[in-house]
């Protein structure tokens, strides 16, 4: 568990509205539907004052096209639960980091065939990531930018399968 995630976890545990955080676990990343916005670290905070609910989110990458969908999914999920007064704020600082992804999120990514972030170096390694399919470390980077900006494309030299790597950032 990263220190950043530990702090997110503590914010969630100390929240007076745990049921709202639980509800928002239903909102998934549209491009990585195995991850909730909580797992991904896009969900920063949830607060309730009287009838009003304020949800704070942050984009992963500057150009992340998923943000619009995430906003409308938050509105839908909270709307269905009867929340009528809702404000969704976008926060830019501190900048999102791959260290915010939950440990469960990393496991889910691996099961989905995506190597989770290493959280060790700033940039993508040229080789040596564990293949999420066969576990071999005999792998190489094919492209620094995979199917989306947050991923790089790797290939396993043992099982020959290509796979995505969720980059450290």
């Amino acid at each position: 568990m990263t220190r950043d995630f530990f702090e997110r976890q503590r914010r969630r545990e100390q929240s007076p509205v745990p049921e709202l955080w639980d509800l928002l676990d239903r909102v998934r990343d549209p491009e990585l539907p195995v991850l909730s916005i909580w797992d991904l670290g896009v969900l920063c905070d949830v607060k309730q004052t009287g009838e009003k609910v304020v949800v704070t989110i942050t984009p992963t990458y500057s150009g992340c096209p998923a943000m619009e969908t995430i906003r409308s999914d938050i509105e839908r999920v909270l709307g269905e639960a009867g929340m009528r007064r809702l404000e969704i704020r976008t926060r830019l600082a501190p900048a999102w980091s791959s260290t915010w992804i939950s440990p469960e999120g990393c496991d889910k990514l691996r099961d989905y065939g995506i190597a989770p972030p290493q959280n060790q170096s700033d940039l993508t390694p040229d080789a040596g990531l564990a293949c999420p399919r066969c576990g071999s470390a005999d792998t190489r980077c094919i492209s620094e930018f995979g199917s989306t900006a947050c991923k790089a494309l790797f290939q396993c030299n043992d099982c020959r399968e290509p796979f995505d790597y969720f980059k450290d950032i």
Partner: peptide
């Protein structure tokens, strides 16, 4: 193909930055 996608992603970062 990979390079095509990579450049598209870089473009998207810039357009996202412009939006901010």
């Amino acid at each position: 193909l990979e390079e095509d996608i990579a450049y598209g992603n870089v473009a998207l970062d810039y357009i996202g930055r412009a939006r901010m």
